[in-house]
Simulated scan of single mutants.
Amino acid sequence: MGSVDPVRLTLDQLRELRDDIAPQAVLRSRASVRTRVDRWRSRVFFISQCAIAAGVAWALARYALGHRQPFFAPVAAMVCLGFSFGQRLRRVAEVMVGVAVGVGVGDLFVRVFGTGIPQIVFVIALAMSVAVLLGAGTLMTTQAGVQAAIVTTLLPSPGAGFSRWLDAALGGLVALAAATIAPATAIRRPRQQASGVLNELAEILIETADGLRARDEEAITDALRRARASESQLDDLRSAADEGVAVVRLSPFVRRHRVRVQEVADLVVPLDRAIRNIRVLVRRCAVSVWRDEAMPAEYPMLLERLADGTRLIAESLFEPAAAVAAHRVLGELGRRTAEMPLPTGLSAVVVLGQIRSTVVDLLELTGTSYDEARRLIPLRLDGLDEK
Rank of each mutant, 00 (worst) to 15 (best):
Q13M: 08
A61R: 03
W58Q: 13
P23R: 05
R43N: 07
R62P: 02
V44L: 12
V33G: 02
R36H: 04
L9I: 15
L17W: 07
F45C: 03
A64C: 03
T35Q: 09
D5W: 09
V7I: 14
A53D: 07
V26I: 11
A25D: 06
T35Y: 04
I47F: 06
A61M: 11
S48A: 14
Q13Y: 02
R43W: 02
R62F: 10
E16H: 14
A59V: 03
L11W: 04
V7P: 03
L17T: 04
F45P: 01
L17Y: 08
S32M: 06
R39P: 00
R36L: 02
A22G: 01
A54V: 06
R43H: 10
A22S: 08
V26H: 07
A61E: 04
A53E: 06
R8V: 14
T35C: 02
V44F: 07
S48G: 14
L11N: 01
A61Q: 05
E16R: 15
A51F: 15
R36Y: 00
F46V: 06
A25T: 09
V37S: 02
R30F: 03
A61C: 14
Y63A: 08
S48Y: 08
A22K: 06
T10P: 08
D20K: 12
L27H: 13
D38Y: 02
R30T: 05
I21Y: 09
T10W: 13
R28Y: 12
L11A: 13
A57H: 06
W40E: 02
S29M: 10
V26Y: 06
G55F: 11
Y63S: 11
D5Q: 10
L65T: 05
R28S: 13
A59W: 03
V7S: 13
A51D: 15
W58A: 09
A61W: 00
Q24F: 07
F46W: 13
Y63T: 10
P6M: 11
V37Q: 01
D5I: 09
V44Y: 04
I47R: 03
Y63V: 08
F46R: 10
P6A: 12
T35F: 02
W58S: 10
A54H: 03
I21V: 15
Q13D: 14
I21P: 01
W40C: 00
Q13F: 01
A57R: 03
L65K: 05
Q24E: 13
R34A: 13
V56P: 01
R39T: 00
R8I: 13
Y63D: 12
R43L: 05
L11R: 11
D20I: 11
I47N: 03
L27Y: 08
Q49L: 11
L27W: 09
W40N: 01
R39A: 02
R36N: 01
D38W: 00
L11C: 03
P23C: 11
L14V: 01
D12I: 07
A64I: 02
T35D: 10
A25M: 06
Y63I: 06
L14A: 01
S32T: 10
R15A: 15
P23W: 07
W58F: 15
L9C: 14
A64W: 04
R8M: 15
W58D: 09
R15S: 15
E16W: 08
A59R: 00
I52E: 00
L11Q: 09
L9N: 12
L17D: 06
I52A: 08
R36V: 00
W58T: 12
D38I: 00
L11E: 09
P6F: 08
R62E: 07
